[in-house]
């Protein structure tokens, strides 16, 4: 099941490059490879465009003379490209993607929903990654009881099907974007930790770490100045794939009625709510679905592309 975090983290586990000679040169090589990877560049471009559009929603709404909250009972379920309605200030407004069941502009609503979905995905992934990387480096570097303890937490968390856990937690915390970020972040770090722990274990024995230790560098310094930079590719790959997975998780929770609640828009709740309007407003079902699909697709493609770029066994 890909709409939960459990499987998305499993993808990069094995594919992650393990035999690399020097972080520096590999990064340069990877960037060179990425520059030639048209598909990944395209995905990056599309993603940046989507993010830019979403986060300039207030400007766009102003330019089109529409509001994502203003209801209009005389103009519900307007089809896309309808432009002739009287808008906010008694002047023409442009409903590029039509209006929804309450007569609100669907396009700007989609953009605001995108803000929520993207932020939830991005911030939750960052949170998960920070916890995951920190825990991974610490367990990998120190081992011992810390390792055992964190492993126990991981196996405990992994033993409960993630959606069950999310269901229970979502029932406890009325999900606002903030709580959802925290919850998804706190549940999604285990895969990263395992990955980073493995990487750290091998990096710990490498010459540059051993020599740093020999000249008396503090463990903190070693962990963050020597080990962390070498985890760059792992971090990027995990981030891209996690964001995608989290956006899907949010949608799945919305379907079960436990995601972000109306009147906050998110792609997930717009999509699950639009279900009942299949025949009346097909566009309300189509666009949120497409936005989720394209965004997640781009993120996966980027994750893939970065992985290939950092793959030391690949030939140029």
């Amino acid at each position: 099941m890909t709409s939960t975090t459990s499987t998305s983290t499993a993808i990069p586990k094995l594919d992650t490059p393990r035999k690399r000679d020097s972080g520096e040169s590999l990064t340069k090589l990877a960037i060179r490879r990425l520059r030639r990877d048209k598909l990944t560049l395209l995905a990056m471009g599309v993603l940046i465009l989507i993010a830019l559009l979403c986060f300039s929603a207030p400007l766009i709404g102003g330019a089109l003379n529409v509001s994502y909250t203003r209801t209009n009972s005389n103009n519900t379920f307007a089809r896309p490209l309808q432009t002739l309605e009287v808008g906010l200030n008694e002047s023409t407004s442009y409903h590029i993607l039509g209006t929804d069941d309450l007569g609100r502009d669907h396009f700007t609503r989609l953009l605001y929903g995108g803000q929520v979905s993207l932020s939830v995905g991005f911030l939750a992934a960052i949170l998960a990654l920070s916890i995951g990387v920190t825990a991974g480096i610490i367990t990998g570097y120190y081992g011992g009881w810390i390792d055992d303890f964190i492993n126990w937490i991981i196996s405990t968390l992994n033993s409960i099907p993630s959606l069950f856990l999310l269901l229970i937690i979502a029932a406890v915390l009325q999900p606002s974007p903030t709580t959802l970020i925290i919850v998804l972040g706190l549940l999604g770090w285990t895969g990263t930790t395992r990955l980073v722990r493995g990487e750290t274990l091998s990096l710990r024995e490498r010459e540059f770490v051993v020599s740093a230790r020999a000249i008396g560098a503090s463990p903190l310094h070693i962990m963050f100045s020597h080990i962390l930079p070498n985890l760059f590719s792992v971090i990027v790959i995990t981030l891209a794939i996690d964001i995608g997975g989290l956006i899907l998780s949010e949608a799945a929770l919305s379907f079960l009625g436990l995601g972000i609640k109306e009147p906050f828009p998110s792609w997930g709740n717009m999509l699950s709510k639009a279900q009942e309007y299949f025949t009346r407003g097909g566009h309300l079902v189509f666009f949120p679905g497409v936005m989720i699909f394209i965004t997640v697709l781009c993120l996966y493609v980027i994750g893939d592309g970065v992985r290939d770029a950092f793959d030391p066994t690949a030939k140029d």
Binding site: T71, L102, P263, E276
Partner: peptide
């Protein structure tokens, strides 16, 4: 959904 719609409308009105 019904009450959510009503609430959203009342909020706006």
């Amino acid at each position: 959904g019904r009450r959510t719609q009503t609430g959203t409308l009342i909020q706006d009105q």
